[in-house]
Protein backbone atom coordinates (compact mmCIF):
# COMPACT_ATOMS: atom_id res chain seq x y z
CA UNK A 1 0.00 0.00 0.00
CA UNK A 2 1.15 3.52 -0.64
CA UNK A 3 -0.11 7.03 -0.04
CA UNK A 4 -0.73 9.79 -2.60
CA UNK A 5 -0.63 13.51 -1.98
CA UNK A 6 -4.31 13.80 -1.11
CA UNK A 7 -3.89 11.00 1.45
CA UNK A 8 -0.90 12.82 2.94
CA UNK A 9 -3.10 15.90 3.35
CA UNK A 10 -5.89 13.82 4.88
CA UNK A 11 -3.51 12.19 7.40
CA UNK A 12 -2.06 15.57 8.31
CA UNK A 13 -5.57 16.87 8.91
CA UNK A 14 -6.42 13.85 11.09
CA UNK A 15 -3.17 14.39 13.03
CA UNK A 16 -3.91 18.12 13.35
CA UNK A 17 -0.60 19.13 11.83
CA UNK A 18 -0.66 21.91 9.26
CA UNK A 19 1.44 21.04 6.21
CA UNK A 20 2.28 23.47 3.44
CA UNK A 21 1.94 22.61 -0.26
CA UNK A 22 5.75 22.52 -0.48
CA UNK A 23 6.02 19.91 2.30
CA UNK A 24 3.55 17.43 0.80
CA UNK A 25 5.73 15.85 -1.94
CA UNK A 26 8.63 15.21 0.47
CA UNK A 27 6.28 13.69 3.07
CA UNK A 28 4.70 11.52 0.39
CA UNK A 29 8.11 10.12 -0.56
CA UNK A 30 9.23 9.54 3.03
CA UNK A 31 5.99 7.90 4.14
CA UNK A 32 5.97 5.64 1.09
CA UNK A 33 9.58 4.56 1.69
CA UNK A 34 8.64 3.53 5.24
CA UNK A 35 5.39 1.80 4.13
CA UNK A 36 7.26 -0.09 1.40
CA UNK A 37 9.84 -1.33 3.92
CA UNK A 38 7.05 -2.45 6.27
CA UNK A 39 5.53 -4.55 3.47
CA UNK A 40 7.92 -7.40 4.32
CA UNK A 41 5.53 -8.26 7.17
CA UNK A 42 3.18 -9.67 4.52
CA UNK A 43 5.63 -12.58 4.15
CA UNK A 44 4.62 -13.84 7.60
CA UNK A 45 1.56 -16.06 7.93
CA UNK A 46 -0.27 -14.74 11.00
CA UNK A 47 -3.61 -16.45 10.30
CA UNK A 48 -3.91 -18.30 13.62
CA UNK A 49 -1.92 -15.92 15.78
CA UNK A 50 -3.57 -13.72 18.40
CA UNK A 51 -2.33 -10.14 18.56
CA UNK A 52 -0.18 -9.40 21.58
CA UNK A 53 -1.95 -7.40 24.25
CA UNK A 54 0.65 -7.37 27.03
CA UNK A 55 4.28 -8.46 27.24
CA UNK A 56 3.93 -9.34 30.91
CA UNK A 57 1.31 -11.83 31.98
CA UNK A 58 -0.43 -9.97 34.73
CA UNK A 59 -3.94 -9.22 35.85
CA UNK A 60 -5.30 -5.70 35.68
CA UNK A 61 -4.61 -3.79 38.86
CA UNK A 62 -7.62 -2.52 40.70
CA UNK A 63 -7.99 -0.01 43.49
CA UNK A 64 -10.78 1.31 45.61
CA UNK A 65 -12.98 3.83 43.86
CA UNK A 66 -11.94 6.71 46.05
CA UNK A 67 -10.53 10.19 45.48
CA UNK A 68 -6.87 9.98 46.52
CA UNK A 69 -5.40 12.99 44.77
CA UNK A 70 -6.27 16.49 43.63
CA UNK A 71 -7.32 19.77 45.13
CA UNK A 72 -4.59 21.91 43.58
CA UNK A 73 -6.04 23.82 40.64
CA UNK A 74 -3.11 26.27 40.77
CA UNK A 75 -0.74 23.45 39.84
CA UNK A 76 -3.08 22.09 37.16
CA UNK A 77 -3.24 25.38 35.25
CA UNK A 78 0.31 26.45 36.14
CA UNK A 79 1.76 25.67 32.70
CA UNK A 80 -1.18 26.75 30.55
CA UNK A 81 -0.38 29.22 27.72
CA UNK A 82 -3.62 31.01 28.65
CA UNK A 83 -5.75 30.52 31.76
CA UNK A 84 -8.26 32.53 33.75
CA UNK A 85 -9.49 31.74 37.26
CA UNK A 86 -8.39 28.08 37.00
CA UNK A 87 -9.93 27.63 33.54
CA UNK A 88 -7.98 26.90 30.37
CA UNK A 89 -8.68 29.61 27.82
CA UNK A 90 -9.18 28.57 24.18
CA UNK A 91 -10.44 30.35 21.05
CA UNK A 92 -14.21 30.65 20.89
CA UNK A 93 -15.80 27.32 19.82
CA UNK A 94 -19.52 28.13 20.21
CA UNK A 95 -21.08 31.09 18.42
Amino acid sequence: MSVDQSTVRRIARLARIKVSDEEVPALEGELNAILKWIEMLNDVDTGNIAPLTSVVETSMKKRNDAVTDGGYPDDVTLNAPASDDHFFVVPKVVE
Binding site: A15, R16, A80
Partner: peptide, 22 residues
Protein backbone atom coordinates in the same frame (compact mmCIF):
# COMPACT_ATOMS: atom_id res chain seq x y z
CA UNK B 1 -1.51 24.31 22.81
CA UNK B 2 -4.17 24.35 25.54
CA UNK B 3 -2.80 22.91 28.79
CA UNK B 4 0.96 23.42 28.55
CA UNK B 5 3.79 24.37 26.26
CA UNK B 6 3.72 26.22 22.99
CA UNK B 7 0.63 27.87 21.53
CA UNK B 8 0.52 29.36 18.04
CA UNK B 9 -2.72 31.27 17.46
CA UNK B 10 -5.05 30.60 14.55
CA UNK B 11 -8.41 31.62 13.07
CA UNK B 12 -10.30 29.10 15.22
CA UNK B 13 -9.47 26.29 17.65
CA UNK B 14 -8.64 23.70 14.96
CA UNK B 15 -6.41 26.20 13.20
CA UNK B 16 -4.71 26.88 16.54
CA UNK B 17 -4.12 23.14 17.08
CA UNK B 18 -2.70 22.72 13.59
CA UNK B 19 -0.46 25.77 13.77
CA UNK B 20 0.82 24.82 17.21
CA UNK B 21 1.66 21.25 16.20
CA UNK B 22 3.21 22.34 12.88
Amino acid sequence: GVRYGLRVDGNDIIDMYENTRA
